[in-house]
Amino acid sequence: MLNVKLPGLDMKNPVMPASGCFSFGKEYGDFFDLNLLGAIAIKSATKEARFGNPTPRVAETTAGMLNAIGLQNPGVEHILDHELKDLEGIDTPILANIAGKQVDDYVYTAEKMSQSPRVNALELNISCPNVKEGGITFGTVPEIAAHLTEKVKAVSDVPVYVKLSPNVSDIVGMAKAVEEAGADGLSMINTLMGMRINLKTQKPILANKAGGLSGPAIKPVAIRMIYEVSQNVNIPIIGMGGIQDADDVIEFFLAGASAVAVGTANFVDPFCCPNIIKELPEKLKQMNVDHIDELRGRSWGRC
């Protein structure tokens, strides 16, 4: 009753940890069997290794957190040779997130990554708010996002998902632009730009000043955007933004998501993903639903 099939991702359940919130899986593999997960979205890979931003890189907010990690990762080659090798023992599909400063970086990383037998699909990060070049600029102008999607699609051996930024005025326009450019699916939403100021120092808490807001605080924004986009595109959506429990997963399906990703909640409870997967069948039974797919888009109808 939980299995879902998305382009490149044949998932035994619709729950995956979100990119950037699960590293490359090893740390959480100490807590539970990674085969329990529907898929794993691994941390962003870039062409070169990146250290990321100075600390502090995280700040807590009401029901959420700000982060400005800055895409720290060991570079695509290292990830292929080490981090992905470590995941060979498990059969959970891998959604490999990629990022870059310019189009060529994305194309280089996408080509390399998509050739790995361990990678089932790519997730284009065009919405990272924490890097000076690239990142979010690709995610705010539909023509630029579409151009990048086309270029990456041309070199990728696996389906390509585009991770959308909520920091735009017309999310539907953006979604349609990347769909037309050939995207096989969408991930939404990435973090919302935010800031916190320390009352003692009277300066921003994050060294990067601004950061991306995640956690339960952004869930209504994600739900609204998925509700609107899912009714205007024909490609599946991996929904994310503040998911903490099975009820949240159901709400994302009702809004129009075809699978979900859990981000910040992993930090609160390392067992969050397996717990949600365990709770879902009972919730569906209570709703008289045989398969979770039946819930998708149920909120769309008029009252």
Binding site: C21, S23, E27, F31, G52, T55, V58, F267
Partner: peptide
């Protein structure tokens, strides 16, 4: 400052 405290989130490097 830490997020996950188990080595996954890269907040405390």
């Amino acid at each position: 400052r830490m997020g996950c405290a188990v080595g996954a989130c890269m907040a405390c490097v």
